[in-house]
Simulated scan of single mutants.
Amino acid sequence: MPLPVAVEIAPADAPREHVAVLLEACTRTKRDTECVAAESVDDGSTFAVAIVTWQGQERALVEVGLRRGGRPEWRTRVLDFEGRDDVLERWRTVGIVVGTLANEELDASAERGGTSTTSPSDTSPDSAPLQAPKAEEASSRRQRPRSSEPEPLETTDAPGRSGGSSHAPPSSKTAAALDLGAALGPALGRARSGGFARMRIPVFRPVFGVAAFRYFEQSAMPLSVGARWLTLAVGAGGVFVASPFELTVSVDGRAEWFTASAERDDREASMARWLAGAGLNATFGWMLLDSLGVFAGGEVAYMFGSTPLKVQGVPAGEDKAARYSGELGLRIPLW
């Protein structure tokens, strides 16, 4: 009977349902034997040993020990997941990767023209099956490889079975998203309100590019100024995910078109100007569904200049260089 692939999972208190999904996916991918939990192997004789270490909920380190040329060789793979990825799909993907790495031993044997067999009495220590590691041994090996073992090797093979569908791990890029919202903040001694659209464009986890369009308006009142602000911004930021929540922070450069008008004694005055500036934005989001979330946040900006306003020579306010606003809105993931 073919020897199994022994899989050790850390932390050891992982839900049984998750472990079962991983082992099932590994067994389907492994072509000649099954994958079992390391603690279920009675005598420790295994075809290969796999150690899966979850580093938080969104990263898994996979290490698979194979026998090549009479010596053990460890291969590693790091899988990064998105916060919106289904938990069971994460475990299934890890199982596929374990089975794929274990299949490499078969592929190497086929290239040499097949596998050779030996009787138990002729088995030397170098050709003996790999032993399932004890917990303390696995912990020590993860900290520092034993002197008799080579350093873990990185592998870039895509998970999946030959002739079957490929199950690549989720992309390491930050998901693109569109924010649509309303904003409120002070200006010219009163409140101004408006709306905005902001596009988050993936670059590489956790970095993203950002492009935004903002519109604010302040209605004219007797003896006061009415004004409009139109802002275009481009920048970059980072997203920090703890599913289903995410914190985003970005900085940008911006150009702002400002217009103001006022009426006094049946006479109207107006003005307009362009200004450049920089902004800092932070939001806290909650993804209610895979396709929709909500967020709240704030923005501070500094424009490279201020604009004093006068009506018939009388000061009517000043659009200051520094400004801030709060915002609420919807977040729509795009890809």
Rank of each mutant, 00 (worst) to 15 (best):
G298R: 02
S165N: 10
L247M: 06
A128L: 07
S224Y: 08
L232F: 15
E82W: 04
F204E: 06
P308W: 11
R67C: 02
A278S: 14
G113R: 02
V52K: 07
A227L: 05
E34F: 09
A177V: 05
M271P: 03
L289N: 12
L330G: 09
D266G: 03
G44V: 05
F81Y: 11
L3M: 04
A175Q: 11
E256I: 01
G70M: 11
G326Q: 00
M199T: 12
E82R: 08
A236W: 08
A37Y: 04
L184N: 11
G226L: 01
T46F: 04
I332D: 07
A321L: 00
A262M: 00
E17I: 07
I96W: 08
E217K: 15
W54I: 09
G329R: 01
D107T: 13
S116Q: 15
E137Q: 12
P125W: 14
L188F: 07
S165Q: 14
E89G: 09
A191Q: 14
V98Q: 04
G237M: 06
R267L: 08
S139W: 10
S148V: 14
S140N: 03
F196N: 04
P186R: 05
G113W: 07
L188P: 12
A37G: 06
P152H: 12
E149K: 12
F240G: 12
F216N: 12
I51N: 05
R92C: 00
S243A: 15
F204N: 11
G163V: 06
Q312F: 14
G160R: 00
D86R: 05
A236T: 06
A37K: 11
T117Y: 13
A37P: 00
R323K: 02
P222M: 09
A242E: 13
R214A: 08
V78G: 10
A14I: 03
S261I: 03
D43Q: 09
G195F: 10
V41W: 07
R200I: 10
W74I: 11
L232N: 14
E8G: 05
V49P: 02
S109A: 14
V62K: 08
A60H: 05
